[in-house]
């Protein structure tokens, strides 16, 4: 009914965190912080992956809801909002399906980050051993 809104809301929060993190990283680079090295993936880049996953999924799911007539172009935009019984069912769906979707995407992203860090470390150690 409106499960995509949960992921959409998380995407907005993630974008805000990503922008703040980007500023911090830029400041650290400008100040010549030695802890920033090229062998790690910046958090802002990882957050961009999460944002793309969440927003991309939410946009395509929103299209599905338009397809099924659950999202309309006029106020209140969600057909379920016009009836209190439908609205409560919609909120229940958001709390169950919507939250599970957002959690699974975040879990997949966390797995992706761990794997990506391992790949970068492996490549860095391979390069170092080849040079030695």
């Amino acid at each position: 009914m409106a499960c995509f809104l949960v992921s959409g809301a998380e995407a907005v929060v993630v974008k805000a965190v990503e922008k703040a993190e980007e500023k911090k990283e830029l400041k650290r680079i400008e100040s010549g912080d030695v802890s920033v090295n090229s062998a790690t993936i910046p958090l802002s880049r990882k957050l961009k992956w999460l944002f793309n996953l969440l927003l991309g999924g939410a946009v395509l799911l929103a299209f599905e809801h338009v397809w099924h007539g659950e999202v309309v172009a006029w106020f209140p935009f969600l057909t379920a909002m016009s009836d209190p019984a439908d609205a409560s069912e919609m909120f229940h769906e958001m709390a169950t399906v919507g939250v599970t979707m957002a959690l699974l995407i975040t879990a997949v992203w966390a797995g992706m980050c761990v794997t990506a860090d391992a790949i970068v470390k492996r490549n860095a150690s391979d390069t170092a051993s080849n040079e030695a």
């Binding site: 995509f4 991309g56 999924g57 395509l60 799911l61 997949v108």
Partner: peptide, 15 residues
């Protein structure tokens, strides 16, 4: 990312 995001979301829907 868009396709994977939608796939994960529809997977949850399917479950």
């Amino acid at each position: 990312f868009m396709y994977w995001g939608a796939s994960i979301m529809w997977f949850v829907d399917a479950i």
